[in-house]
Structures are given as structure tokens and as C-alpha cells.
Design a protein around this nucleic acid. Structure first.
Ligand SMILES: [Zn+2]
Ligand SMILES: [Zn+2]
Length: 757
DNA sequence: AGCACGCCGACT
DNA sequence: GTCGGCGTGCTC
């Protein structure tokens, strides 16, 4: 494709003018947060006939303001109310066919509409990074072929030059790869000579066209396991075709994965593919390995640690049907699969399916929409389902299947509260906990400690006057780190030296307040000098692979203590760990976010499931200052299901999700009050629109008002009617885009927010 | 979001 | 005198 070289030169008056003033325009979704589509003239290099063959979904390079961007044509037969003489031409057409399959294109439209983000930004999210940058959709391979002149030669021409005649004969049969020609003894010099004669040429063609893909094998590499009655029932209940959302609730070790594998096998046998969505850090090679071990067909992963090239390669193979199974994190939702047969969302309760910046979509919810659109089954699996999915099941929207039997009849670990009130604590650990640890370690077992704070301690305080080290950019305390020795703001990433004396009273008596993983590790190293203490958090495992190295040591089975954050709670099973401790469960249960209790309950159940095996039962100690707390008691005595029912009842009363719907609007500005004032005007302007069906909560300052030097505020919309709220969300965005003050600050809209803080 | 333009304070 | 912070406006 040729690019127009004249588009940007205003003095060039001879720039080609469109012959027809009514000629159709191209409407382009440009990757910008602006929620608009932009009209362009078709590229000047294209004839009307060529234009007519262009279909929506092709990528184009356009001049946008002073920059060049790659967008997606959403309509190539548009009329514009924009002044025609002001339209710019498309600079370059990048594709012959749509980059989106029909289902992905519809999914983009749905996400754009439901989450209130521009189609351009959504479509950009839906494409691999390299495609956003203009890389071609198919891998390109080199082929030799005859030029028009070459085609004019009769068969048996070029008698005089034997090798050239051979090359001619080969190419008269069709295009040939450089490799084939080499095998036939055609040297570079021969080709060169023929090129010089203008008889042959080298072209790049799509790999997909060059190598027609064979049907994938549906055979098993490893035979399926025998299912218990509940697993079998689950397998029977999920149909092969038709939209059928299913919540598969299975306690850890109940064999959810085996059900997934057998459901997928049925799809492979029917010549269809499967998409498996997994949480961000739950993605261990072990997950992939079970799928690879089971099936002969190609299985591929998609996750954030992969290179852009590797991700593009998976996308390309998936698109042409070369992959039977794609397993991936959030953005794998957009993987094109020609005959998608089933979607599995594993650990569906996990928060990482929701994108927290940019287009704030929930991949689990969008996956349900994709499955509905494709009329295929979708399985949401978890030991601790989200209240959303439980509610959907109870409302009859999802089928609810339970797996209650643990394989091999292993007993669930015993969970026990440790009342730490008035106890002598040693670096956050009670005597009871330390004693239990000592016992297990002496037996040669492993111990796992959860502590949701990185660093040495979450704040630095002057013991003399109470001064506390805080960030210059944020309303936040600085975390003390000893390795490397510095104060670190976890909110804006700024770093400071640890002062030798208090800047307020000059006392040298500065103390770390509170316990982080680093501090806990140090304390444990002193208490148990004979046992390795491994720390797993973002500071120790920043690289991917580091975690696996660390875990390899754990899986050797030698006694050790693992100290870690949430990071440890996902995906990994530790068969030799017989004691798990939650160092501080209170933070979760008393969180000011409405999902706090749900999350901590899920965490407790999940970590309990991580420990022990059939031959030695694990136990879980939960340290708390509130052993009488109703939910905590209920969780221990009656299990997750009972807690979930209590929480659902509570949400019902409060009109919170899933019994009501939320939209959060956040704004920040350089100066205090500005954001809050703007949100107040937003409320005043739109409050009348929805009446009493919608509750406006706020505006209010964010929990941390100042962050990265900006002052933040938020307002929440709550309603029992999803439709009404969606409509209002549209009005909110419209108002924000039009308001002169709002345009000067940063704002974002979050439909179905994960957090309300 | 980028990106450029324009304005005012402070330094090589 | 310029360099650069940031407030403002625009993107078919
Ligand atoms: Zn002091
Ligand atoms: Zn900060």
C-alpha cells in the first residue's frame, strides 16, 4: 500500500481531490481515550473499485492531530456531518480483511457500550500490542513467482540455460519457497539472473495461505481420569453447544480441572477449540502442563510476562485454527478462535479479571457475553465463587454444580482462630503461633505465613514525638525497607533515605511501626536459625521465573518457612506445608470496602486448601483481635457457603452488588477541592434525570486524597436497575466530556467497580 | 492520552 | 537573553 505523501502539506494545492463529493467516507476507531469515531477520506492511492472491496475491521494508519495513529475502520460507507474539505485522507490501508472475527468485533462493541469507553480504545485493547503498532496480521513468508513477463514465456523456454529453465519450470507449476528452490539446486545467482531479466520476483505472502493447516488431533496423550459421581454429573450437565453458563463450585482437590479437561476434550472431538481464562498470578507452568500432558493438540499460553512477539504468534496461530486450547489471563478474552466451543473461567472470583485502568472491563463478565453471543457453554469455576456468580446461580441464570468430595478422601485442614488480644506478640506473631510452627518444623514439615504487607514495616515513627514519615506526593505513610535501605511510597513509587534523626524533634529514636514481610522474615530467621526462611513478595520475585526457582526449593520437601503476600495464595499447592497462618485477618474483615469480607473469606478458604495432603492433614491458624466476629465464626463453623449467604443478605439490604449495581466516577486535579467541586456539579446536573431509582453517594474525597501529587475525589451511583444505571452512565460520560472544567482534569468511569475506595 | 503553543519565573 | 514548568486547546 502506498502512503499519501501530500496529506500534511497545506501548501500543496494539487493534493488529489475526491472526484465525487458524495463518495463514501471511512469511519475510524482511533486508539485515544476520546469516545468518538473520526471520519476520513479513503486513501488517495486507492481506486473507487479498490475502496469498494474494503470491509470494516481493517486497520488504517491515519494522521490524527499532530500524530500518526493506527485505527480500525468501523464503517467504510459513511457520510459525515463534518465539513468535507476538512477531512484528511487515510494514510495507509494495512489489511485486506478484518482483524477481528465477527464475535470479537461484537464483543468490542458491547464492552464499549457497557463500560462506557471509546471503541478505538477498546479495539486497541483487543489486539496484540504488535498489531496495534502495525505489524501484519499473518506471519509473512517469502515466495518466488513469475512476473507478467515470465508468465508470457512458453513451456520449455530458456533451453540454453539449464538451471534457469528448471527454475522457470518450477515456477510455472506455482509459487515456490526459497527453501524448495535451494533443494532443487537453484543458486542465488540463478535467481538473480532471472530477476534481472524481469522474469521472476520475490513476494511476501501470508503464512496462513502458504501452509494450509491440518485439522487438529482430538486424541489424548494421557488417558482421562475416572470421574466420581459429582464430576460425572457436572460433565453431563454441561451441554456441548448452546449458551449454557455454569457455576462449577468445587472445593480444592475436588477435581475441577479434570472436569474442564474432559469438557474440552468433547469440544476438540467436535473440531472446536477451547478458551481458558485464569487469574494473573495463578498462572503457573503446572496449569499449562496438565493441558499439554493430556492432549495431542497444540495448547498455548497467553500472559503478561510473555514478549509481544510471542503473544502475537499465539494470536496468529489461534486465529487460523492451529491451536486447540488457549489458556490465558484477562486479555486472552479477545483471542480469536474460528470454532470456539467452550470458555472456562478458572478461579472466577479472582479480582484480576477486572482491568483497573484504561478500559475498565471485567473479562469474566465479558466472557459470559462472548459465550452467549457464540451460543456456547461457559464454565465459571471456583472453590469460593464470587457473590455475583452465586447470585446468578440462585436467580436461575447460571446452572450451579458442586463438587464436594476431595480426591482420595483427604480431610480438609482444620482452621482455628487465635485470639491475640492481650497476648505477648513477637513481631506480629503470637506465642501460640510460634509454638505451632516449632512443632511442625520439628516434624520436618513446612510452614506458610501470609502477611499482606511488603517491606520491613508499613511506617516509620518517632518514638519521642510521634512524627511519622510520609510521602511528599501522597497522603500516605512511607514503608520502611531494609534491603535496600530506604523509605518507599507504594502509591507513587518515590523513594527517600531513612533519616538518622526525627526532622521534627531531632531525636534519634525512630522506630518501624507495624510488621511487613521483610521484618517477619528477619524475626523468623533469628527464631529458627536452622530453617531456611523464604520470602515471596513483589520485592523478592519481580522477575518471572524467580518465583518458580523459589518454589522448586519448597517442593523439595525440606523443612522451611515461607513468608509471603497474597502472591503465594494463588494457584500453588504445597503438599508438604502442614501449617498455614494468617498473621492478621482483621484488616480484611474490617476493611471499609464492601468487598473486604468477601475477599478475606475467599483468601482464608483458598489458603487452607493450599496446604497438606491425604497422609498428613494441614491446619490453619488465623490471628485476630476479634474472635467473636460473626463472619469469622461462621466461616470456621459452617464454611464459605454460609458466609456467602450472610454476605448476600447484607448486600441485599444495602443494595450493593450483586443485589444492586454500581458505577464509580473518579476525578483528580492538581489543586485541592477542584475534583470534588466538579463532581458535585455533575451530580447537580444529572440527579434529576434518574429520580429516586438511583442513589448518588458523594462526591467525597478519595480515601487517600492526595496521590502522586494530585487531589482525588469520587462519586458513586447505585441502583437496583442495571439498565437505568447504564443509561445514566452514558449521560455522565456525555456531561464530563462536554463540561469545560471536567475537560481540564482527569476523570474516569468504572462500571461494576471492584473497589469503592 | 499525546502534542503543541504560549506565558511567566529562574539561571547557564 | 533562553530553558522549562504547566495551563489550555485540539484531535475527522
Ligand atoms: Zn520526633
Ligand atoms: Zn507517594
Amino acid at each position: 500500500m502506498n502512503r499519501s505523501s501530500t496529506a500534511d502539506e497545506p501548501f500543496n494545492l494539487s493534493a488529489p481531490q475526491p472526484a465525487d463529493e458524495d463518495a463514501p467516507l471511512w469511519r475510524v476507531a482511533v486508539p485515544t481515550p476520546l469516545r468518538k469515531l473520526y471520519d476520513y477520506l479513503p486513501p488517495v492511492a486507492l481506486t473507487a473499485e479498490q475502496c469498494a472491496r474494503v470491509t470494516p475491521g481493517v486497520r488504517v494508519k491515519v494522521s490524527f492531530g499532530r500524530q500518526q495513529l493506527i485505527g480500525v475502520v468501523v464503517d467504510c460507507d459513511a457520510q459525515s456531518d463534518f465539513q468535507r474539505s476538512k477531512l484528511k485522507p487515510v494514510l495507509e490501508l494495512l489489511d485486506n480483511d478484518s482483524v477481528f472475527s465477527a464475535d470479537i468485533e461484537r464483543l468490542c462493541h458491547w464492552i464499549s457500550r457497557y463500560y462506557q469507553y471509546g471503541l478505538g480504545e477498546v479495539m486497541s485493547n483487543a489486539l496484540p500490542v504488535l498489531l496495534r503498532k502495525g505489524r501484519s496480521v499473518s506471519a509473512q513468508v517469502k515466495r518466488w513467482r513469475l512476473t507478467t513477463n515470465g508468465k508470457g514465456l512458453p513451456e520449455g523456454a530458456l533451453r540454453g540455460a539449464k538451471k534457469q529453465a528448471l527454475l522457470l519450470a518450477l515456477l510455472q507449476r506455482g509459487e515456490q519457497s526459497p527453501e524448495t528452490l535451494k533443494e532443487q539446486g537453484i543458486s542465488a545467482a540463478i535467481s538473480r539472473a532471472m530477476v534481472d531479466k524481469g522474469l521472476i520476483e520475490q513476494v511476501l505472502i501470508d503464512e496462513a495461505l502458504a501452509v494450509p493447516s491440518a485439522p487438529l488431533p482430538a486424541t489424548l496423550r494421557q488417558s482421562a481420569l475416572t470421574l466420581n459421581a459429582q464430576q460425572q454429573r457436572a460433565l453431563d450437565e454441561v451441554p456441548d453447544t448452546g449458551f449454557a453458563p455454569t457455576l462449577l463450585q468445587g472445593v480444592t482437590g475436588s477435581g475441577k480441572t479434570e472436569v474442564y479437561l474432559q469438557l474440552i476434550h468433547r469440544q476438540l472431538e467436535a473440531g472446536r477449540q477451547a478458551l481458558v481464562l485464569v487469574p494473573e498470578i495463578g498462572l503457573t507452568p503446572q496449569t499449562q502442563q496438565r493441558f499439554i500432558d493430556r492432549f495431542d493438540c497444540p495448547v498455548a499460553m497467553l500472559h503478561s510476562a510473555m514478549s509481544d512477539t510471542a503473544r502475537l504468534e499465539v494470536w496468529r496461530r489461534a486465529r487460523v485454527g492451529q491451536l486447540g486450547i488457549v489458556i490465558g489471563t484477562r486479555s486472552a478474552l479477545f483471542t480469536p478462535l474460528p470454532q470456539l466451543g467452550i470458555i472456562i473461567v478458572d478461579e472466577e472470583h479472582d479480582g484480576s479479571f477486572k482491568q483497573l485502568e484504561g478500559v475498565r472491563y471485567n473479562a469474566r463478565d465479558a466472557a459470559v457475553v462472548r459465550a452467549k453471543d457464540c451460543a456456547i457453554p461457559i464454565v465459571l469455576g471456583s472453590a469460593t465463587p464470587s457473590l455475583e456468580s452465586l447470585h446468578n446461580a440462585q436467580q436461575g441464570r447460571y446452572r450451579h454444580l458442586e463438587l464436594l468430595e476431595r480426591a482420595g478422601g483427604a480431610e480438609p485442614p482444620a482452621v482455628q482462630l487465635v485470639d491475640v488480644r492481650q497476648q505477648n506478640m513477637h513481631e506480629g506473631m503470637s506465642g501460640e503461633l510460634l509454638e505451632a510452627m516449632r512443632e511442625e518444623l520439628q516434624r520436618g514439615r513446612q510452614v506458610l505465613l501470609f502477611l499482606n504487607r511488603r517491606g520491613y514495616s508499613p511506617s516509620l515513627m518517632c518514638h519521642q514525638c510521634g512524627w511519622c514519615a510520609d510521602c511528599h506526593n501522597c497522603d500516605a505513610k512511607l514503608t520502611v525497607h531494609l534491603k535496600p535501605r530506604q523509605l518507599h511510597c507504594h502509591h507513587c513509587d518515590s523513594r527517600y533515605a531513612i533519616p538518622a534523626a526525627c526532622p521534627n524533634c531531632h531525636s534519634g529514636n525512630l522506630l518501624g511501626e507495624g510488621i511487613g514481610t521483610e521484618r517477619s522474615q528477619r524475626a523468623l530467621e533469628q527464631l529458627f536459625p536452622a530453617v531456611p526462611v523464604l520470602r515471596v513478595d513483589r520485592d523478592t520475585v519481580s522477575r518471572r521465573g524467580e518465583l518458580d526457582e523459589l518454589l522448586a526449593e519448597v517442593h523439595s520437601g525440606e523443612p522451611c518457612i515461607l513468608v509471603g503476600t497474597q502472591m503465594l495464595a494463588k494457584g500453588h499447592h504445597f503438599p508438604d506445608v502442614t501449617l498455614v497462618a494468617i498473621v492478621d485477618a482483621d484488616a480484611g474483615f474490617f476493611s471499609s470496602d464492601f468487598r473486604g469480607s468477601e475477599r478475606i473469606s475467599q483468601l482464608l478458604v483458598q489458603v487452607a486448601g493450599r496446604a497438606g495432603r491425604a497422609e498428613h492433614r494441614g491446619r490453619v491458624l488465623v490471628q485476630t483481635h476479634h474472635p467473636e466476629h460473626l463472619l469469622m465464626r461462621q466461616l470456621l463453623e459452617q464454611g464459605y457457603h454460609a458466609v456467602a449467604q450472610s454476605l448476600l443478605a447484607e448486600r441485599q439490604v444495602l443494595g450493593l452488588p450483586p443485589c444492586g449495581y454500581l458505577v464509580m466516577v473518579r476525578a483528580d486535579a492538581r489543586h485541592e477541592q477542584l475534583a470534588e467541586q466538579m463532581l458535585a456539579r455533575l451530580r447537580d446536573a444529572l440527579q434529576g434525570l434518574a429520580g429516586s431509582e438511583v442513589t448518588w453517594v458523594g462526591p467525597m474525597p478519595a480515601l487517600m486524597v492526595r496521590r502522586q501529587g494530585r487531589f482525588r475525589a469520587q462519586i458513586m451511583l447505585r441502583s437496583g436497575s442495571r439498565g437505568l444505571l447504564a443509561q445514566l452512565a452514558g449521560a455522565v460520560v456525555g456531561w464530563l466530556e462536554a463540561d469545560a472544567e471536567a475537560r481540564k482534569m482527569r476523570w474516569s468511569i468504572d462500571v461494576d467497580p471492584q473497589d469503592t475506595l
